[in-house]
Computed example of a mutant assay.
Amino acid sequence: MKLDWYPAWRDEAIEQLNVKNARLEKEFRIGTWSRYDYDLTAGTLLFSQDGVVKVVTEIQIAGSTSAKASNWLWAWANSNLPSELLSDAKQVRSFGEMNGVDELAQPYVTDADNQLEVLGWELSAVMSRICNGLGVYRCPSSEGGGLYLMFKSINWAS
């Protein structure tokens, strides 16, 4: 069951994320670095150029899309991920349960139009709004899906 307020609220979350990500592009050149590396043990995402780390971020994992499965999997439902990086995703699940928003409270979400990347950005935007994220980065996977990471902090490397 979706509540009447949720679609507009989610659209606002997407607009907010677009503004946040545009700021990160401008201030930290996110999206322009030649390399990124995430470390799920340390909870970091690093952006590098010519072997030199330029930007360091602390992350939480939102979830992932899978072209093979044609769905989104919330990070809180993925037993392969470290629990330290799931607290914000668990907060989203609680929000969904309290407000009757099924797509936030169920492990898997599908999209009728099979626009998985759009779905991934939409649900990551919702997490960013609920958890006051600074932005979101999508790491593409070789199978056509992506891993969506929410920034909790971002700084220039020293």
Rank of each mutant, 00 (worst) to 15 (best):
P140A: 10
E122T: 04
A105N: 14
Q16Y: 04
R93T: 02
L123N: 08
V53N: 11
A77F: 07
I14W: 04
S64L: 11
N132A: 10
M1H: 05
P7E: 13
S124L: 07
M1Q: 08
E122Y: 01
D113E: 15
E25F: 10
A13Y: 01
L149G: 01
S48V: 01
E84T: 09
T44C: 04
S34E: 14
S128I: 05
M98E: 12
E15L: 14
F95T: 09
D37G: 02
D11K: 14
E27Y: 06
G43L: 06
D88R: 09
Q106V: 15
V52H: 11
N155P: 00
W121E: 07
W74A: 08
Q91H: 05
A112V: 12
D102E: 15
N18E: 15
K90W: 04
A22E: 13
P82M: 02
M98Y: 10
Q60M: 10
S153I: 01
I130Y: 04
K68W: 06
M150V: 06
Q106H: 05
L119W: 07
V126Y: 04
E12D: 14
K90T: 01
E143F: 10
T41N: 13
T41E: 15
S94C: 04
G31P: 05
V53Y: 00
K26Y: 15
L116D: 07
